[in-house]
C-alpha cells in the first residue's frame, strides 16, 4: 500500500511538470495552429539555461536560476518564431512544411546542446531536502515546491485568459484568427507574446523536470515530448484546461502503473492512453469549440 501512495506522490510531481509543459504547448498550438515538434528541446534548453546560471556562472540559487533561465527561454522562443517558424508558416500554407521545419529545429537544437554540453548527465546544485509526510504521501521539499510552482502557474494562466484583455484577445485568436484580425486585434503582437509564454513555460517545465528526475541531459525533453502529446491529446488539442486535466491523468497513470509493472515501460503506458484516446474520442476529453 505504501508503494501505491509513494507512486501517487511521484504522479503529482510528474503531473505538475506535464501540466506546465502541456499548457505551454497548447497555448502556442491554439494561436499558430501547428504542432511544435522541437518543444521537447525547448524544455531541455530551458533546463540547461537554468543549469548554467545555477552551476557554471553566477552560481545562483536553483529557484532564481529557474526563473531567469525560463525567461531567457521565452526570449529564445520569440527569436526562433521571428527568424524561422513564423516565415515558414506564412510562406507555406500546407501544414506539413512547417511540421518538418520544427522537426528539423528539434534535430538542430538537440545536437547543438550535445555540442555545447556533451552527453554526460548533469545535476543541479541544490540543497538536499528532507522528505515530508503529507497525509499518506511522502514528498521532498523540492518536489512540493515543484507542485506549488505548477499550481501557481496554472492559476496564473487561468487568470490571464479569463480576466485580462490580452487573454481575451488570445482566446479570440485561437478560435478564429481571421475574425480576430478583422476585429482589430494585433495578431502579430499576440503571436509574439504567446511564443514568449510558451517558451517560458517550456523552460520552467524543463528545469522542474531536471529537478524532479534529479538529472538533466540534452535528450531529457525528447523522450518526454510524447508524454506531453499524450496529455494534450487526452485533454483535447488546443484546450488549455483539457491540457491541465490530461496532464494530471497521464502523470498519475504513468507513475502508478510503474508501481505495478516494470517501471521501464511507464512511457509506453502514456502511448497506449494516447492511442486509445485517438481511437475512442479523437477530439479529446474536452472538445475544443471551433474544431469539428
Amino acid at each position: 500500500m505504501s508503494l501505491f501512495w509513494l507512486s501517487v506522490g511521484f504522479g503529482f510531481v510528474t503531473a505538475s511538470v506535464l501540466a506546465v509543459a502541456a499548457v505551454g504547448l497548447s497555448l502556442q498550438f491554439g494561436i499558430t495552429n501547428y504542432v511544435n515538434f522541437a518543444y521537447g528541446d525547448f524544455m531541455a534548453l530551458g533546463g540547461f539555461f537554468a543549469y548554467v546560471l545555477n552551476s557554471e556562472v553566477l552560481h545562483l540559487n536553483i529557484w532564481i536560476a529557474l526563473v531567469l533561465g525560463s525567461l531567457l527561454m521565452g526570449v529564445f522562443a520569440v527569436i526562433v518564431n521571428r527568424l524561422i517558424l513564423g516565415p515558414f508558416a506564412r510562406r507555406f500554407t500546407k501544414p506539413h512544411y512547417v511540421l518538418i521545419v520544427t522537426f528539423g529545429l528539434s534535430l538542430i537544437m538537440l545536437n547543438a546542446e550535445y555540442s555545447i554540453w556533451g552527453a554526460q548527465v548533469r545535476f543541479f546544485r541544490m540543497p538536499i531536502a528532507p522528505a515530508l509526510h503529507i497525509g499518506p504521501l511522502l514528498l521532498t521539499r523540492n518536489q512540493l515546491i515543484v507542485i506549488a510552482i505548477a499550481i501557481a502557474l496554472m492559476l496564473g494562466v487561468h487568470t490571464l485568459l479569463k480576466a485580462t484583455r490580452l487573454g481575451k484577445s488570445m482566446r479570440a485568436m485561437s478560435d478564429n484568427t481571421t475574425l480576430a484580425m478583422t476585429s482589430g486585434i494585433d495578431t502579430k503582437r499576440i503571436t509574439t507574446i504567446t511564443w514568449f509564454l510558451s517558451g517560458t513555460l517550456a523552460g520552467v517545465a524543463g528545469t522542474v523536470l531536471g529537478i524532479g528526475e534529479g538529472n538533466l541531459t540534452p535528450a531529457s525533453g525528447e523522450l518526454f515530448l510524447f508524454v506531453i502529446f499524450a496529455a494534450v491529446i487526452l485533454g483535447g488539442v488546443g484546450s488549455i484546461y483539457g491540457a491541465m486535466g490530461g496532464a494530471l491523468l497521464i502523470g498519475l497513470a504513468t507513475e502508478i502503473s510503474a508501481a505495478f509493472i516494470n517501471p521501464a515501460y511507464k512511457l509506453d503506458i502514456a502511448f497506449v492512453l494516447l492511442i486509445l484516446t485517438l481511437l475512442i474520442r479523437p477530439s479529446g476529453l474536452i472538445a475544443r469549440p471551433g474544431t469539428t
Partner: peptide
C-alpha cells in the same frame, strides 16, 4: 496531418524505448 505526425513520432519514440 498533424495528429498523424504526433502519433507517428510518438510511435517512433516508443518503439525505441521498447
Amino acid at each position: 496531418t498533424d495528429y498523424l505526425a504526433i502519433v507517428l513520432i510518438s510511435l517512433s519514440l516508443v518503439l525505441y524505448d521498447f
